[in-house]
Amino acid sequence: MAFQFPFKLTGACALLAVAAVAGAATPHHGGGHAHKPPAAAQKEQKPWGIAGEAKSVTRTVALTMDDNMRFTPDKLSFKQGETVRFVIRNQGKLLHELVIGTKAELEAHAAMMAKSPGMAHDLPGMTHVPAGKSGELVWTFNRPGEFDFACLVAGHYQAGMVGKINVTAR
């Protein structure tokens, strides 16, 4: 049974509330960063775009992440309307994740993760990648602007595991 809020949440409040409910409803694993197996991405419009469909991919971008708390590359540019498949390789020995969002929402989520490092969460625009593994994320950048991506595993954002996305208008 899905939980529904009795009122509309937007922006950072929605992100925090969804993560809090997910954390309360999902078991935690020994202080690690718990997560659910990948499910179909939710189709919810965000300021930075919407979950994409594999059949609509117009571009594939390979990213690596490592235990030096860095993404390579850490600056990406897209055109409005592009649907991108991110292929993310974790070259480290720690769990990492890629989360797309605005700087304000990523900062709020990172602060929450620092307070509750075992909290489970699985949101659109996010993928968890275990050590030595690869993951994928398909996203449609249907809004122009400057956005961010980060690893929000407790302490990783604070250590500088961040990147920038520029989406130019059509």
Rank of each mutant, 00 (worst) to 15 (best):
L137G: 02
T127S: 09
R85N: 00
M119D: 03
H128F: 12
E105K: 00
Q80I: 01
S116W: 12
R70I: 10
N90E: 13
A111F: 09
M126H: 15
G132R: 11
T60G: 03
E82K: 06
D122F: 08
N142C: 09
H96C: 09
L123W: 02
S116G: 03
N90L: 14
T64Q: 11
S56P: 00
L137V: 06
R89F: 11
E82Q: 15
E82G: 05
P73Y: 04
T60Y: 03
K75C: 08
N68V: 06
T140P: 04
P73T: 05
V99L: 07
L76P: 04
D122V: 02
T127G: 01
D66K: 10
R85W: 00
H121W: 01
G118F: 03
P117V: 11
R85L: 13
V57R: 01
G101Q: 05
M112E: 14
M65P: 02
I88R: 01
N90I: 12
T140S: 10
Q80S: 03
T102K: 00
F86V: 05
V99N: 01
K75D: 11
M119K: 06
S116Q: 12
D122P: 01
G81P: 07
H109S: 05
S56N: 13
I88P: 04
T64G: 10
D67W: 09
M65R: 04
P130N: 08
N90Y: 04
D74S: 15
M126K: 06
F71Y: 14
A111R: 15
D67I: 12
G132I: 12
E82W: 08
M126R: 05
M69A: 13
M126S: 08
N90C: 14
L76F: 12
M69T: 10
Q91S: 13
M113C: 11
V61H: 05
G135W: 04
